[in-house]
């Protein structure tokens, strides 16, 4: 089978347990080339674990994951080679604090891809420009705001030329006024046709940018579909309750009111 007609990311019967705690209880999910999929759900629903299973930062207990037709979960696969094709952005940015912004981008290119100095610097410059931080090339990560650090982290992942980008709550550690600049970069990336899997609580982003939204709870996919349907007109009670809490945190839920039939508030 040629990799052309396969989805970019295929997840088959994925289970993951930490000791007795079963975090993922059988996940099946396909993400097509160029598709943007947002994964939403309450904390502890397993959404971050699912994302981390895609590039094997967590090893699944059972099931298979394919990226670009290569089985990530195959014990004989060169995992470092597969990971080069999968960019990942973390909640805590995880920039390398001991080197400059530019070196954050060139170090992986040179050590992992063996690019020569000139090429690595050129790629770094281009990607910093792409996220609007060309003027911070010589700064150290600690001198940047959270939003700037996260944009550098995106540029670092892009410098490796990935086919897929994974985002693990990329704006959750940011002050509210810095969220927008990061989402803007991600929106632009989506418009350029990048395949993206985004774990997020930003419902407006999910609604605007995502081709598909997946709602997870208790380690299973409860509901998935086009963003306007899952976010705008959820079919499942659990989805509706979750969206209500997210969209209107001040409206505390009454005890025993978890099956409330109130529709999700309009966005």
């Amino acid at each position: 089978m040629s990799s052309m007609d396969r989805p970019e990311i295929e997840i088959r019967g994925l289970h993951k347990s930490f000791g007795d705690n079963e975090v993922l209880r059988g996940i099946d999910l396909d993400i097509g080339r160029g598709e943007v999929v947002c994964v939403i759900g309450p904390s502890g629903s397993g959404k971050s674990t699912l994302l981390r299973c895609v590039n094997l930062l967590e090893e699944p207990t059972a099931g298979q994951v394919f990226v670009g037709g290569t089985e990530v979960t195959d014990l004989d696969v060169d995992i470092d080679a597969v990971r080069r094709r999968i960019g990942m952005v973390f909640q805590q940015f995880n920039l390398f604090p001991h080197v400059t912004v530019t070196e954050n981008l060139t170090l992986p290119q040179r050590r992992v891809l063996r690019r020569d100095k000139a090429e690595a610097f050129e790629v770094a410059r281009r990607n910093l420009e792409r996220v609007g931080l060309a003027d911070k090339a010589d700064a150290y990560p600690s001198q940047l705001s959270g939003g700037q650090q996260q944009r550098v982290a995106i540029a670092r992942a892009l410098s490796m030329g990935p086919e897929v980008m994974l985002f693990d709550e990329p704006t959750s550690a940011l002050d509210p006024e810095l969220v927008g600049e990061v989402l803007a970069v991600m929106r632009q990336l989506a418009a350029e046709g990048m395949t993206m899997m985004v774990v997020t609580h930003e419902m407006s982003f999910a609604r605007e940018v995502a081709d598909r939204v997946v709602f997870m709870d208790g380690g299973v996919i409860v509901e998935e579909g086009p963003a306007e349907r899952v976010v705008g007109d959820p079919q499942q009670v659990r989805t509706r309750n979750f969206l209500m809490r997210i969209l209107d945190p001040a409206a505390a839920e009454q005890p025993g009111d978890t099956t409330s039939e109130r529709p999700a508030k309009e966005l």
Binding site: D80, R84, I86, M88, P108, R111, V112, A153, M160
Partner: peptide
């Protein structure tokens, strides 16, 4: 997170140790 970031960029465990 430093090791995880390095691994996600394709560093091997040993190279991530040495470089990061």
């Amino acid at each position: 997170g430093q090791m995880e970031a390095a691994r996600s960029l394709g560093f091997s465990h040993a190279r991530a140790m040495v470089s990061v």
